[in-house]
Design a protein around this nucleic acid. Structure first.
Length: 449
RNA sequence: GCGAUCGUAGCUCAGUUGGUUAGAGCGCCGGUUUGUGGUACCGGAGGUCGGGGGUUCGAGACCCCUCGGUCGCCCCA
């Protein structure tokens, strides 16, 4: 028989399972909880959009657009792109749904994004982000609220230690353009001293030379003019309001005048929460103000701010998550007892008890499984010769034990389980078993049909 | 796209300068033991050594190509 080649996953994709899945889930659940505290509405977006949505808003010359997008033609001949980020799609939705009426609109979402990049740890071709945006608010208070949200999220995830908020302003459109011209002039004058990468950047993305890691670029980048000299008084005032607001909220920040954004649409506030624990993938949450974006998509001039955070990266920073364990495993003592056991399982689950049903193998195997899954207690269902048990069948009793507490039969777990069983049965009798670390009980159906 | 490094059982890895039937631990399956089943002991299954080509009497080890992982650059969350 010819052996067929097993399929490989697509490069840079991941199957998230076990502990990774628990980390992922914890990040998303914490995000969902905190965003409600701040009054952000959830929203779901399509995973693909017309290519022009991203091409126009991100800037044609950016790396993301020019070489990292998953773009394809559909059967109707339209060029579509798997979303490489959230902001452009949300802006498009804002326009096509007439969400102007809800301004200022606070939105949040999370889900998969796609970028054709070289995979590394914490960087995938299909990756996942949290996202928060405030659309239609030009006030610095919107920036402050968004940053407080981010700060609280990181704190509640327990990863704020070792993470610093770096803050900068790119000024309004005029400030930014004037600064950019000055930078280009400065770098042009020192072009010969720049690294090859940075010489390329001079054409495409001169702002990026500022945070170059190339040693030979540092003196030139460090001596480049700061934005401050080019800020209009309005832009200066705006940034001051943001920093004062952060101080009022108790959010720690540091000014990084070398912090810039890669995408064209950013104005004013730019920020990154950075950790030193993830190597080259140190940025854990980043964003800024993008007042020009919606206009560039053909809409009315609409101020907006937002951020995004990598779920995988946040998950990697989390403390060891405690695994999900069933509270109790129900074990029929004999195949004949399975139906009754299932009935009990249903009653427990409906009463809110996390219950596992051991359905494979002999009784010993079922106990082994209960141990392996880490359930705190076992509930064994056995036939009861006294005939006092669950009516309409021949009579059953249960035995509950908790292996971790051999000495204490009257543990809280046993009480909790007995209490839950009362929602479906009358517990007519229960007593400590002869072995000393278990409780036997007889159940009687409480509502007889 | 560039540079470095790695790829042996389901998992983590060992396999000495190329040399007979490729090993261990954990996990899995079966059995014995045990205080309700933790533990301990015995046995078993499972590998075309990422894939393809080459050098050689002989390759898991050497060479080339290719596909993946990891780290850095680029870019970015």
């Amino acid at each position: 028989m010819a052996k067929i080649q097993t399929p490989q996953p697509v490069r840079g994709t991941q199957d998230i399972f076990g502990e990774d899945q628990e980390r992922f889930q914890h990040v998303v659940e914490t995000f969902e909880r905190v965003r409600r505290l701040y009054g952000f509405k959830g929203v779901q977006m399509p995973v693909f959009e017309p290519t022009s949505v991203f091409a126009r808003s991100l800037g044609e010359t950016t790396d993301v657009v020019s070489k990292e997008m998953y773009s394809f033609e559909d059967r109707g001949g339209d060029s579509l792109t798997l979303r490489p980020e959230f902001t452009a799609g949300i802006s498009r939705a804002f326009l096509t749904n007439g969400w102007q009426q809800h301004m200022p609109l606070k939105l949040s979402t999370h889900g998969p994004l796609f970028r054709y990049e070289r995979p590394q740890k914490g960087r995938y071709r299909q990756f996942h982000q949290l996202d928060a945006e405030i659309i239609g608010a030009g006030e610095a208070a919107a920036d402050v609220e968004l940053l407080c949200f981010a700060d609280q999220l990181l704190k509640e995830l327990g990863i704020a230690d070792g993470v610093t908020l770096q803050l900068n302003t790119l000024g309004d459109a005029e400030s930014r353009d004037a600064w950019r011209d000055a930078l280009v002039a400065h770098f042009q004058a020192h072009k010969a001293g720049l690294s090859k990468d940075s010489q390329d950047r001079l054409e495409r993305n001169p702002l990026r030379i500022l945070d170059s890691k190339e040693r030979q670029d540092r003196p030139i980048a460090d001596s480049a003019p700061d934005i401050d000299a080019y800020l209009s008084s309005e832009a200066k005032e705006f940034f001051a309001q943001v920093t004062e607001g952060l101080d009022a909220c108790g959010v720690a920040w540091t000014r990084n005048s070398r912090l810039v954004r890669g995408l064209d649409y950013y104005r004013h506030t730019a920020f990154e929460f950075v950790t030193d624990r993830l190597g080259a993938q140190g940025t854990v949450l980043a964003g800024g103000r993008y007042d020009g974006l919606i206009e560039s998509l053909g809409g009315p001039a609409t101020p907006a701010v937002g951020w995004a955070a990598g779920i995988e990266r946040l998950g990697m920073l989390l403390e060891e998550p405690r695994p999900e364990k069933p509270l109790i495993t129900v074990i029929p003592d004999d195949p004949k007892d399975e139906k009754v056991a299932l009935e009990i399982v249903s009653v427990l689950r409906r009463a809110g008890i996390v219950t596992d049903f051991a359905f494979r193998g002999n009784t010993k195997k079922r106990f082994t499984l209960a141990t392996k899954r880490g359930s705190r207690g076992r509930l064994v269902v056995t036939a009861d010769e006294s005939g006092k048990g669950i009516p309409s069948r021949q009579g059953h009793k249960i035995r509950i034990n908790e292996p971790d507490s051999f000495e204490q039969a009257n543990s809280s777990l046993i009480d909790v389980v007995l209490e839950a069983l009362k929602s479906g049965y009358n517990v007519v009798a229960h007593e400590r078993a002869e072995t000393g670390y278990a409780v036997d009980a007889v159940l009687q159906a409480s509502n007889i049909e």
